[in-house]
């Protein structure tokens, strides 16, 4: 899971630095840009501008953190899944998310940061993760809504990242997208079972859609007028489409799916424009989005506290593993010497 909106502020740091660029640097930068323009992949040992490296570290690690924090709201329902088939599917899904976190931390490590450093930034609150996971999952239908809407929105964002100019990130995304699209279908199928179920189940499904619809639209980040700093990321081919373009694609794909479920999208202004072939939708309440970014979402504190607790409670385990590895090495040396 990943949201472009996270980088809205961070991108300001990517503007070309005001200091003079030496001739040598200028040549390197030109060579780099030429390769990017030619759709060549940039690899870890290649020269790259500092801003490019910083942007990628930030974006990939935020993406990794989002996968890890995202395990919590969904993990919340593993022990209560209503059938064994659903339980196994949810376990597998949450496990996949842990796996995505792992590839993404590894991709970030190719840029010269360590996983522990990045996790430290998450736990200290310095690093961001997708705000969508600061919403709670009070009912079983939330598991369906997350798969259908949140993974659906994530896929819109992530498919273009498979063509990202940075090789390790692009390759990680290929695998992640394959799994995410499976999760999305699974989520939709779960919603379908509810929508076709008893009146109580249908009510549960509608309630979840009501709560997840707008936050899902916010996952694409601020509107293009508000997000003026993304041009550099476009030039670097880290980003391929604007926030509004991707949001529109998501709405166009999702509204007919909701209709098929017999559920209503909680937007009185939603209508199909036959001239443009697109759905027009109401204004997004960015106040809520900004408050959650500031840490005032319903679950911001709980999510980070849960991650910190896992980390702190596990300290003795990690220490034991290190101590044991050292003992083994010592014994092997003794044996050899």
């Amino acid at each position: 899971m990943y949201t472009q909106g996270l980088d809205a502020k961070a991108e300001q740091g990517n503007q070309p630095s005001p200091r003079l660029v030496t001739e040598e640097e200028g040549r390197l930068q030109q060579g780099f840009q030429d390769r990017v323009d030619a759709e060549e992949k940039i690899e870890p040992r290649d020269w790259m501008p500092d801003g490019y490296r910083r942007t990628l570290v930030r974006q990939i690690s935020q993406h990794a953190h989002s996968e890890i924090v995202g395990m919590l709201p969904e993990g919340n329902w593993i022990t209560r899944a209503p059938t064994l088939r659903r339980k196994v599917a949810l376990l597998a899904k949450v496990q996949d998310e842990g796996g995505h976190g792992l590839y993404l931390y590894s991709a970030a490590e190719t840029l010269g940061v360590s996983r522990d450093e990045l996790i430290g930034q998450l736990l200290s609150g310095k690093a961001k993760y997708s705000s969508i996971f600061n919403y709670p999952t009070p009912t079983w239908a939330d598991i369906g809504a997350i798969g259908w809407l949140v993974d659906g929105a994530a896929i819109m964002n992530q498919v273009p990242l498979c063509r990202c100019s940075y090789g390790p990130y692009a390759r990680a995304m290929v695998r992640i997208c394959r799994e995410e699209s499976f999760h999305q279908r699974q989520g939709y199928e779960l919603m379908l079972a509810l929508a076709q179920g008893t009146p109580e189940q249908k009510r549960m499904a509608q309630d979840a859609l009501n709560r997840w619809w707008w936050p899902s639209l916010m996952m694409f980040g601020p509107s293009d007028e508000q997000s003026a700093h993304s041009s550099q990321n476009m030039a670097w081919k880290i980003k391929r489409f604007s926030n509004d373009e991707l949001r529109q694609r998501f709405v166009d794909a999702t509204v007919p799916q909701a209709e098929f479920l017999g559920l209503s999208i909680p937007d009185p202004d939603l209508r199909f424009n036959a001239d443009t072939g697109h759905y027009e939708f109401g204004a997004i309440d960015w106040t809520e989005f900004n408050e959650i970014l500031k840490g005032n979402g319903p679950c911001n504190r709980e999510r980070i506290e849960a991650r910190r607790k896992a980390w702190d409670d596990g300290a003795w385990v990690r220490e034991a593993a290190v101590a044991h590895a050292a003992k083994r090495k010592q014994r092997a040396l003794k044996k050899a010497g």
């Binding site: 395990m71 376990l91 792992l102 990690r318």
Partner: peptide, 22 residues
């Protein structure tokens, strides 16, 4: 084991314990 999911001492164990639970 599934109660550990998301709360293990390290990411590899989150994955491993979930996998055994599965």
């Amino acid at each position: 084991l599934s109660e550990w999911c998301g709360h293990a001492p390290e990411l590899e164990e989150d994955i491993a314990l979930t996998n055994v639970a599965l």
